[in-house]
Amino acid sequence: MNNRVLYRISLGIMVAALLIMGMNWLLLPLPDSVVRVIGVGMMTDLVFLSYLTAKNKKKSMV
């Protein structure tokens, strides 16, 4: 799979997780287990997002 496609998927997952967390803060409170699962997913996605960003930046410099 292309790196750009993986980057967009990872970015989409992060945006969706942030929207759900914002919904938790603004609209309705979510159960604690849901917030924890979303938090773990965000931390995992942050690793992939930072790796893909660094890889794309390195590739564009060469």
Rank of each mutant, 00 (worst) to 15 (best):
G39F: 01
A16S: 08
L28R: 15
G12S: 08
K55N: 09
V15N: 04
L28W: 15
L11T: 15
L49Q: 07
L6T: 04
M61H: 12
V34H: 01
D32C: 02
F48E: 01
M21F: 13
L46G: 14
V47I: 15
K59Q: 12
I20C: 04
T53S: 05
L30H: 06
M21N: 04
F48V: 14
M43P: 00
L28C: 11
R8V: 07
L18W: 07
K58S: 14
I38A: 00
M43Y: 04
Y7S: 08
M42S: 09
G41Q: 02
V34G: 01
L6D: 03
M43D: 15
L26Q: 05
L19R: 02
M1N: 07
T44F: 14
Y7C: 02
V47S: 04
G22N: 10
I20T: 03
G22Q: 05
M42W: 01
L27E: 06
I13Y: 04
L28H: 15
L49K: 05
A16D: 00
M23S: 12
R4G: 05
L27R: 11
R36W: 00
I13L: 12
S10I: 00
K57V: 12
G22V: 06
K58E: 09
L11A: 14
T44I: 15
N24C: 01
M23T: 11
G39L: 03
A16T: 09
G41C: 11
I20F: 01
Y7Q: 10
L27K: 05
R8T: 12
N3A: 12
M42C: 03
I20A: 03
M42Y: 03
L6R: 15
L6G: 00
R4E: 15
D45P: 00
S60R: 10
G39A: 03
L28M: 13
I20P: 00
N24K: 05
T44C: 10
V5I: 11
M1Y: 06
S33L: 10
M14K: 11
V40H: 02
S60G: 07
L6N: 04
M14L: 07
L27P: 02
V62A: 09
T53C: 03
M23V: 03
G22S: 13
Y51A: 06
P29I: 05
V40M: 13
A16I: 05
V47F: 13
M42V: 10
R4M: 09
V40Y: 11
L49T: 13
S10Y: 01
G22E: 08
A16E: 00
V62F: 09
L30G: 02
Y51I: 08
D32E: 11
V37D: 05
